[in-house]
Simulated assay, not measured.
Amino acid sequence: MMRLRLEGQPARNRIEQMDLMALLSTYPTFLIRMLECHTVISFQAWKATEEGDHAAFRASMADAEHLTMNMVRNPTGTLFEGVILRGFVAATADRLSKSGAELGMADEVEKWTRALERQKAIREAGNSKTLTLEDRSGNPSLMVGSLFGVSEDISYKILEKPLKLTDSDVEPGRMLDHEILSRFCSYFLWIVMAASVAVLAAYRFRVTRLGWFLAGRAESLLDGRDRGWIIGAGVVLPFAWVLF
């Protein structure tokens, strides 16, 4: 897909190609492909380091800087786009810093070294954050819900100034957990009930005729009031307790 889009909008030189790649990075379906650009630039930097080619390394560094600046200028519409951009910058800065140090060009890669240190500081600061809900902190899955707890915790760590959440904001996530669990338990109980009925129905074929006779005599001892108590207390009352 990347090759087809680049061929559809040919660039006349390397700078225009970098501009085009930065433009394509704004496409949602193309965004994840930008990490492959880091692989290409890192390989070029590594190859230049192995060959001791300072000019080739400077060209790779210029490509990385040009592409990064264009990506930064394009406003990110989602948090995911910002995460991809930060990952691209951190990975590229790490490779260029190491290659520059090996080539004795530490001064020229100082900006990438500072960028790498800043990304590390941001990541460490994010990892030290704990999801807080109305001045309460705890397990995100319990406060927000198992389905949204992980994503909320990650976004809370990524954002420099995360939004302040209230209990009403995250209550739907917890209620969704309750609904899923109640449905699962309902299906499970129906399966258990069906299995129990099947076992009881099959058990009658193992009872002798004398057992049938005694059971019939016991049933004849029940009057209408007894049957009412059995149906009311054993069937209606449990259903009413669960439903209301």
Rank of each mutant, 00 (worst) to 15 (best):
R3G: 09
L4C: 15
R5F: 14
E7S: 14
R14T: 13
I15W: 14
E16M: 11
Q17F: 02
L20N: 10
A22D: 02
L23R: 15
L24N: 03
S25C: 12
T26G: 06
F30S: 08
L31P: 08
R33L: 10
R33M: 15
M34W: 05
C37T: 12
C37G: 07
T39K: 15
S42E: 10
Q44A: 13
Q44Y: 10
A45K: 03
W46Q: 08
A48T: 08
E50A: 14
E51N: 15
D53E: 03
H54A: 15
H54V: 10
F57G: 11
R58E: 05
A59M: 12
S60F: 02
A62N: 06
A62V: 11
D63P: 06
D63H: 04
E65Q: 13
E65F: 01
L67F: 07
T68H: 00
M69C: 15
M69G: 00
M71R: 02
R73G: 00
P75S: 04
P75A: 02
T78E: 05
L79I: 04
L79H: 11
E81V: 03
G82L: 00
I84E: 06
I84D: 01
L85K: 01
G87H: 04
A91E: 13
T92M: 08
T92H: 14
R95L: 08
L96N: 02
S97A: 09
K98L: 14
S99R: 07
S99L: 09
A101N: 14
E102Q: 13
A106I: 12
D107V: 14
E108G: 03
A115F: 01
L116F: 09
R118I: 09
K120I: 04
A125R: 14
G126W: 07
S128A: 05
T130E: 03
T130W: 00
L131M: 02
L133G: 05
D135W: 05
D135H: 06
S137R: 13
G138W: 00
S141P: 00
V144E: 01
S146G: 05
G149A: 01
V150P: 10
S151W: 01
E152Y: 12
I154K: 09
E160S: 13
K161Q: 10
K161D: 05
P162W: 08
K164L: 13
D169N: 07
G173T: 07
M175A: 12
E179F: 09
L181Q: 04
R183D: 11
F184S: 13
Y187N: 12
F188M: 14
L189S: 15
L189K: 11
W190Q: 07
A194Y: 04
A194G: 12
L200W: 11
L200D: 05
L200Q: 12
A201I: 07
A201P: 05
R209H: 03
G211T: 02
W212P: 07
R217T: 01
G228R: 13
I230P: 01
G232N: 04
A233T: 03
A233P: 04
G234L: 02
P238W: 03
W241C: 06
W241D: 05
W241N: 02
V242E: 06
L243Q: 01
L243H: 06
